[in-house]
Amino acid sequence: MDTLTVGVEEEFFLIHPATGRTVPRAEHVRTAAGLRPAVASSEVQSELLQCQVEVNTPVCLGLDEVGGHLLRLRHSLAEAAEDVGCRLAASGSAPFTPLGTPAISTSPRYRSMRVDAAQLAAEQLICGMHVHVGVPDRATGVAVLNRLRPWLPVLVAIGANSPLWDGADTQFSSWRTVVFGRWPVSGTPPPFADADDYERRAGALVDHGIIRDRGQLYWQARLSERFPTVEVRATDVQLRPDEAVLLAGLIRALVATAMAGERAGAPAPVQPPEFAAGAVWHAARYGLTNRLHDPLTGHPAKAGDVVAGLLKYTLPALREAGDERQVTSLVHRLLRDGQGADRQRAALAAGGRDGLIRLITGITATA
Rank of each mutant, 00 (worst) to 15 (best):
A234R: 11
S105F: 04
L49D: 12
Q124Y: 09
A350C: 09
F12I: 02
A346W: 04
A266I: 00
N56K: 11
K312Q: 14
G68Y: 07
P163H: 03
H299M: 12
I104L: 10
R336L: 10
H208L: 14
P37F: 01
L77C: 11
A81E: 05
G278T: 00
A204P: 04
Q216A: 09
L4W: 00
H130E: 02
G7A: 15
V331G: 13
V306I: 03
T289P: 09
A349F: 00
A279N: 04
R147Q: 03
L254G: 11
R345D: 02
D236Q: 09
V178W: 02
V154M: 06
D242C: 09
A80M: 02
A94T: 07
S107E: 11
L99K: 01
A160Q: 06
A308Q: 12
T366Q: 12
A258Y: 13
S329H: 13
R200H: 07
E243L: 11
T361R: 05
R200K: 08
T22C: 15
A303C: 06
G85C: 02
A258D: 13
P190M: 04
P228R: 07
F12M: 12
I357E: 02
Q326N: 00
M129Q: 14
S46Q: 09
A121Q: 09
C51I: 00
W281K: 12
T364V: 11
A143C: 05
G62Y: 08
A94P: 06
Q45K: 12
G287F: 01
P300W: 01
H69V: 07
L239F: 01
F12Y: 15
E65G: 14
D294A: 10
T57G: 11
I357R: 07
R25M: 05
A256M: 11
L70W: 03
R291P: 00
R325D: 06
V154T: 08
A221M: 08
T5R: 15
M1I: 04
V237R: 10
D354T: 14
L48C: 14
F13T: 13
V53W: 06
G287A: 05
A204H: 02
R74D: 01
A139V: 07
T106F: 05
R343V: 03
Q124S: 14
V115T: 13
P163G: 00
P300Q: 03
F172T: 07
H282S: 14
H332E: 15
E79N: 14
Q326C: 01
C86Y: 02
G362Y: 01
P269Q: 00
S91R: 09
A367M: 04
A168T: 10
Q119K: 08
M259R: 15
